[in-house]
């Protein structure tokens, strides 16, 4: 009697491992198991399958992820993975021919391009969206029409903590109004971008401000206090033009007001920038699923950019991207 129980346990353990084995085999041998995958996608499209690997900037990743998410409804069998190793890490993998797409928040550097050339990886740079940050102040604020990037750096530099507490500290011509600051939380891409271009180092910022991941907090704070100032994505300024005021930015070439147009034409610099994806030319030509995905991504880039709160491409930018891609196939 006593020996029976362990035997039963043994057979149970065996059955468990057998079930696991079956599950394992089921998946590999038979991808059509997707019946239980319940993806609502109709098995429409042209029945493409395969894998697409993207890696790179965490700022651009939400765009590629949104594209992959929507593309599942078009071609359910194409498997898209989007990793976020940062722009530099993305290029390292891309130039080692490990990925098909590299997400980048800046153009490729010469030394990175050299790596690609050494490995024989040819690529095409595509602008996939535009990114813009706006600096906002209270509508009653009549002195800060235009700020230079140096003045912004004076306000936001880590050394200014506890030192620059009033507008008069920024520029003697400004009134002695207490400066209340609102900004992005340290986890956000907005924070990384702003600190990088204004303070010269990603993540370098004074800390005595109200950080918030909820940009509505910034809107309320800035609209309720005369000396307040904040920064966030351009879309929030465009949605709330009456209760906050956008500040023109002088990056060395005159004052430019933040708007979709000035971001798109590149004149709103440095707080406006293009976002890129880099595509492996050979893979684009050889893999129909990659070609289809990229074409889908570019032609839907407007919706994707808006849903991820970026500034969409202009028609010209879309045309440029499409013609560059078309030249790869021929």
């Amino acid at each position: 009697m006593t020996t029976k129980l362990p035997k039963f346990a043994a057979s149970g353990a065996f059955a468990l491992s057998a079930a696991l084995l079956l599950a394992a085999c089921g998946g590999t041998s038979d991808d059509a198991d997707g019946a239980e995958a319940s993806s609502s996608a109709a098995a429409g499209g042209s029945g493409l399958s395969g894998t697409i690997a993207a890696d790179g900037s965490s700022t651009v990743a939400p765009l590629t992820e949104a594209a992959a998410d929507a593309y599942r409804d078009v071609e359910a069998d194409v498997q898209v993975t989007v990793a976020t190793s940062g722009t530099g890490g993305g290029f390292a993998a891309f130039c080692a021919n490990e990925t098909d797409i590299s997400d980048a928040s800046r153009p490729i550097k010469d030394e990175e391009a050299d790596l690609c050339a050494e490995a024989g990886v040819e690529f095409t740079e595509i602008i996939i969206a535009n990114d813009g940050l706006s600096v906002v102040v209270n509508p009653e604020n009549d002195w800060a029409q235009c700020l230079t990037t140096e003045q912004l750096a004076t306000i936001w530099a880590p050394e200014s903590e506890g030192e620059v507490m009033s507008w008069a500290d920024v520029d003697p011509s400004f009134p002695d109004e207490p400066l209340t600051l609102y900004g992005a939380g340290t986890d956000s891409g907005t924070f990384d971008y702003f600190t990088d271009v204004i303070n010269g180092e990603e993540g370098a910022s004074r800390t005595d401000y109200s950080p918030s991941e909820d940009d509505n907090v910034t809107i309320q704070g800035v609209s309720g206090e005369l000396g307040a100032m904040g920064y966030f994505g351009l879309s929030y300024l465009e949605e709330n033009p009456d209760i906050i005021k956008g500040v023109e930015i002088d990056g060395g070439e005159g004052c430019v007001y933040p708007s979709t147009e000035t971001v798109q034409d590149g004149s709103y610099s440095p707080l406006g920038r293009p976002l890129f994806i880099y595509v492996n030319n050979a893979n684009y030509a050889e893999k129909p699923e990659l070609r289809d995905f990229i074409d889908y991504y570019v032609s839907n880039s407007g919706d994707i950019a808006e849903s991820a709160l970026f500034v969409p491409l202009t028609d010209d930018q879309v045309e440029t991207a499409e013609s560059e891609l078309a030249s790869l196939v021929n």
Partner: peptide, 17 residues
């Protein structure tokens, strides 16, 4: 090992992401 990725699909095999 690159497990921090966004997947648009169900993992379905030994070589799947």
């Amino acid at each position: 090992l690159g497990g921090l990725v966004f997947l648009s699909f169900d993992p379905n095999g030994l070589t799947s992401g």
